[in-house]
Amino acid sequence: MSGKRFIECPVIVFAVALVLAGCTGPQSSLDPAGREAERIAGLFWWMAGGAVVVWALVVWLAWSAMHGRVSRHTERQARLYVIGGGVLFPTLVLAGLLAYGLGMMPALLEPAPPGSLKISVSGEQWWWRVRYHTADGGEVELANEIRLPVGEPASFELESPDVIHSFWIPSLAGKMDMIPGRRTRLVLHPTRTGTFRGQCAEFCGDSHALMAFPVVVMEKDAFAAWLTAQRAPAATPQADAGPEARRVNRGRDAFLEHGCSACHTVRGTLARGAIGPDLTHVGGRLTLGAGILPNDHPSFVRWIAETDRVKPGVLMPHYRMLPSGEHDALAAYLESLQ
């Protein structure tokens, strides 16, 4: 018996550790990196703690009801148990939890102070159109990646042109629906730097699960530098005639020739399409295809040649029919758009 216990113990410890390890990571509400997420995690722990206490009480009551001596209870005591434990206690516990939960909401809905960073995000099947509003009244359109300065409030305006999506960065805050014809708001206060993951949280069609985005919380200066770089038009191709530059230039021509420019914008070039994500700095993003592929050469090739296999139902046509040299050149060009 004791030998068996000895074996079981590390197994249990390992199992618990394995389960708890799931609580951290770039997409966990239980590993908060923002003020709102901290509140929500607090709510979770209070609720979980309350549930454990209530559960233990109920189990103890059941146990003592089965093993206690019936004759020891007077009728009055029994009635007290039923009314106290069955009516009063649950009502009070629920009232307490309700007051605590509701009391949290006004703070979560507080608007950001005037002058805060403002970002519009539009959820579109199955990617994210992101617009940063700059202090001088300008606007920078980006896609599929959000960067925020640490310690600063960021105010999001959320919308959708097609179906309902939901904008959720579990590490930073709760989720907010993006509803066609309406504009919803969400305020975030990131508290530590790091790379996190956002995910569409409202079923929106075939590739709903493949609609994610990386979120980078950076130091203030690094963020400002990043935004300035994103604002600039695409790097002009080098004039030198090395093989790499030739490949990039061929890719740039192919981008216009094959009609990619009808849907995509590359600021500073003739590509001004507005249907798909802005690709001005696509090579500098952390991921491709709304958080589903790494940002590297093979992934670009795969995205262009097998779009529909990578993302079922995708609204971009695949370019499987192009000769592979073209895939390669297009990929080289897009990678060069840092």
Partner: peptide, 14 residues
């Protein structure tokens, strides 16, 4: 009463 409790927490349409 639980449903009515919201009047103590929400003061605007946010």
């Amino acid at each position: 009463l639980f449903a009515a409790a919201v009047v103590f927490y929400f003061f605007d349409c946010r």
